[in-house]
Amino acid sequence: MPLPDEYLVYPRRGYGMDHDFYEWSAWSQRPKITWPDGARVALWVNVVLEQFPLDTEKTPFPVPLGLERPYPDYWNYTLRDYGNRVGCYRLFRMLDNLGIKTSVAMNAALAQSTPFLMQDIIARGYEVIAHGLDMAHLHTNATSEEDEREWIRRSLEMLRQAGANPTGWLSPGQSQSDHTPKLLAEAGLEYCCDWSNDDMPYPFTGPASGLVSLPYPFELSDVYCMGLWHQTAVEFAEQILDGFHALNAEATKESGRVLALTLHASISGQPYRVKPIREALSAIMKHEGVWSAKPGAILQAVRSQP
């Protein structure tokens, strides 16, 4: 069957983006960003804590490292759960020893089911990012706008009941529907990390005005480098350092930069992976001009630019 002639019609072919979520902005035309104390690179380390319900039915698309084996998939369930029992505490200890300001993106269901973990996170002074209900609740257009609004409301409510006060959002699997940015803004959230399209924060527009996108380079995450691509922790650590040096060099010439690093407790928290990651982070922390910052502080700094 031939294609309809509408296939050769391009309704959004014009200046800027092909949607109204945010505006096009060329890298070369950005204003210079200055970090507190003249720092060059803001280092943001985000630990992700996730709950994969054992009875997950087919999701709209597969989540990286999700449950894919027949019920009951103890293999993947327990591999991921390892992160919430063992891996995260190993990472928390490492990050605290290095003096790194940390955020934790956490599924609401996990916050509810593990009060010990949540209290520990709060006691350590970490910033909690709402990470949806759980890894079975992916945000797509298959869910109605009202249902999605309710998912977001419940996620925030559950996290608050557990003692956190999230101002930011990361969807499970970075999934968003056409309504998500608007619903996040409506829920009073200040930032989201689902759009991996920039190395610097930028504002959403239109119905999502007020919401800011923070950089989330998922290819420099442990899920991709080690979980999916089977690179070694040494190779992962090299990439972190290479990324840092590149950003640091740019910041010297151009503008403050953000190095956003995502660690999943079930992957980076494996014993044999800790040392290379620790060494890379330690080298960055010892470097001059590094500002270890939680996402809320980065957002605050961006908002207070002259």
């Binding site: 983006m17 949607h19 096009w24 902005s25 060329a26 890298w27 070369s28 709209p60 698309f61 797509t140 257009n141 298959a142 699997g173 970075q174 999934s175 968003q176 529907s177 056409d178 998500t180 689902d194 759009w195 991996s196 399209n197 920039d198 190395d199 610097m200 998922f218 290819e219 740019e250």
Partner: peptide, 22 residues
């Protein structure tokens, strides 16, 4: 992924906003 595939779209958009200039 089903539209809107925000993860993959934003990844490609990164090329135009940041990567290409570098």
């Amino acid at each position: 992924r089903p539209n809107p595939d925000v993860l993959n779209y934003s990844w490609r958009d990164y090329g135009n906003r940041a990567g290409v200039w570098r």
